[in-house]
Design a protein around this nucleic acid. Structure first.
Length: 209
DNA sequence: TCATTAACACGGG
DNA sequence: CCCGTGTTAATGA
């Protein structure tokens, strides 16, 4: 069951024996939108790899600020979990379900063993690291070089791309929180973007054009 | 100049 | 009535 699901969601090649071990040690879990999957300061013992649905990674500030870092979806692994587990340390990001979905939890102890045993697993972990590093760089670029207008546009495009209807079902306040700014700013910029025919505003719902 | 905070009115569910 | 939205005014970085 698990191995078939993994093969469907992950196009890369995995060795037969690796798939068998995933079947044996992995556990299939469902999540629903809004679920807090991994909290800050949680000790990680397993790494989720996503079968379907969307998960978001959020960085928490000391004084109750927060910032959305990036989204993960089918074919992505939550490397944050693995990184912190490697150092027997605690998670410094929060992982929240953006939509309903399913993932497979792989115990960290097995993942370490697989690194030595299976070239395909090594390749998968390294390329996942690469993807996340690139992602983090674009997050930094965005923060450093874009004003709030540009950041909001990027955010909207990113979120819309994840949903089939190209729309965003969030309140201005939720967007403001994820971008670590105030609602006034979001409302104002959204209104400007509407006048530019970039989007249409509704209650709890934004449609990109 | 642009973000933040507080405050208020409007309107739909 | 409550919540999300649109807007303004004062203040600050």
């Amino acid at each position: 069951m698990i191995r078939e699901r993994i093969q469907l969601a992950y196009p890369e090649y995995f060795e037969e024996n690796l798939l068998q071990e995933m079947e044996q040690f992995g556990s299939l879990q469902k999540f629903t939108a809004g679920d807090l999957l991994i909290d800050v300061n949680m000790l990680i013992q397993a790494m989720p790899i996503i079968l379907n649905g969307i998960i978001k990674i959020i960085r928490d500030d000391a004084n109750d600020g927060e910032l959305l870092l990036y989204f993960l979806q089918q074919g992505d692994a939550c490397l944050m979990s693995y990184m912190s587990s490697q150092h027997d340390t605690y998670s410094d990001t929060r992982t929240v379900a953006e939509t309903d979905g399913e993932f497979v939890m792989l115990p960290v102890s097995m993942m370490d063993e697989w690194l030595g045993k299976y070239p395909s697993w090594r390749k998968f972990v390294l390329s996942s690291y690469n993807k996340r590093l690139d992602e983090m760089l674009s997050v930094i670029d965005n923060l450093a070089f874009n004003d709030m207008n540009g950041r909001l546009k990027n955010y909207l495009i990113e979120v819309a791309a994840l949903h089939p209807q190209k729309s965003i079902t969030k309140t201005h306040q939720e967007i403001a929180t994820e971008m670590n700014t105030s609602r006034v700013v979001i409302s104002r910029i959204l209104k400007i973007l509407e006048k530019e025919n970039f989007l249409v505003l509704n209650r709890n719902y934004i449609k990109l054009l």
